[in-house]
Nucleic acid binder design. Sequence first.
RNA 1: GGAGAGGUGGCUGAGUGGUUGAAAGCGGCGGUCUUGAAAACCGCAGUCCUGCUUAGCGGGACCGGGGGUUCGAAUCCCUCCCUCUCCGCCA
Length: 424
Amino acid sequence: MLDLDFIRSNPDKVKKAVQNKGEKANLDEVLKLDTARREVITQLDNLRARRNKASDEVAQLKKSGQDAKAIITEMKTVSADIKRLEDEIKSVEDKLQQLLRWIPNIPADDVPIGIDAKSNLEVKHWGKRAEFSFAAKPHWEIGSNLGILDSETATRIAGSGFILLKGKGARLERALINFMIDLHTQEHNYCEIAPPFMANRQSMFATGQLPNLEQDMYATKEEDMFLIPTAEVPLTNIWRDTPIPEDDLPVYYTAYTPCFRRESGSYGKDTRGIVRVHQFDKVEMVKFVQPKTSFDELEKLLSDAESVLQALGLEYRVVKLSTGDMSFASAKTYDIEAWAPGLGRYLEVSSCSNFTDFQARRGNIKFRDKNGKLKFVHTLNGSGLALPRTLICLLETYQQPDGAVEIPKVLQPYMDGVTAIKHS
RNA sequence: GGAGAGGUGGCUGAGUGGUUGAAAGCGGCGGUCUUGAAAACCGCAGUCCUGCUUAGCGGGACCGGGGGUUCGAAUCCCUCCCUCUCCGCCA
């Protein structure tokens, strides 16, 4: 959500942002409603002031035993007018809020302008391309050959687009989660959280999943709750409607959660393997920071996510997303894409964004500054990392001619010292 | 799922339908006193919206959310949400 004040005084910037992000938002109507709103408020407040005054007079008259009929009769019509204006203001504000929800965050100045991923900008490359003396296999072949990945069974249990890991495969998943969480808590100062995996409508609105992505989420029928599509939702909502003590800033949280996504409309994309699934594990990082520092914090967040790939020895590149490719709520986003040799392409394993005060405004997340004033924080989040795709890159990068997969050194302590997953 | 109790300021906790933005206590901030601190005493303190002659001054709203009754609602009525206690069920 943007500040109405900002929209009013910078309509051109907002218009440009809407356009560059490929969103549809009725800005002219917003400005019109904003004016109407303030006009009605002025009238309404004047009438209310009159009523308050009269109310005191009635009280005084009654106290001294005098007749107040005249005022009461007069106030009947005033009250009727107030009620009419209250209905009007409610309808105007409802419409305004409705439209405001669809206005995206303003992209930062250094974000490349473009309608889609074609305008993204590669800003960094790390690691050497893995070379193979044989034809590198895709992960689903490696996984099923080793008996650690069983998609058919997952399909029987839940349907297509679900993963079942087995034996060392399941263990590897758990090892990755533990390794990542330990790295972020021990090296990068994040506080570990184990949050709810479901969230209510208000939480989903605060982080920006609603209203845009309602169809992409799994919802419960009876309770109007949603399965979280990312830990960003519960983590960011920890401070919703709750001022953060300034001394606590910056606040860093990390959490492992499963993520649930319907992926409706993505049929035909990534149907093989586990690149795109309905449920996947992810370690997420979320930050609440002082507004001035948020873009620096984004760079740090990015490097925290990168350090996972570096430790695992996986080749990757960092891409700065263009206006059209980044999310509705983001001001600036970096994607990290790791190389999957078997697939022969990069996979997005992390997305690190600065939401500036966009989510904070929606979720009323504030801190008290030195002068005692409440101000919106800036929020950021980044995957650190998404598991199935990291697992894909790992299996495909460390596959051996005999079908075994070597385990990177940093993970071995998390695997009881296992150095490779071999055919059993 | 059944029965009951309750949601008031940063916290605890009062509040006969009419100067109640709201007593009191704690905590907080500023001061007096003190070499310093504590204690004591005095004073200040909420959020949001809006207007203007915008370091300020007005006005309005806010006592879980929404609706209703009334000239007037923290107070009465309806409804939803949440918390707590007991029973049942259950990892």
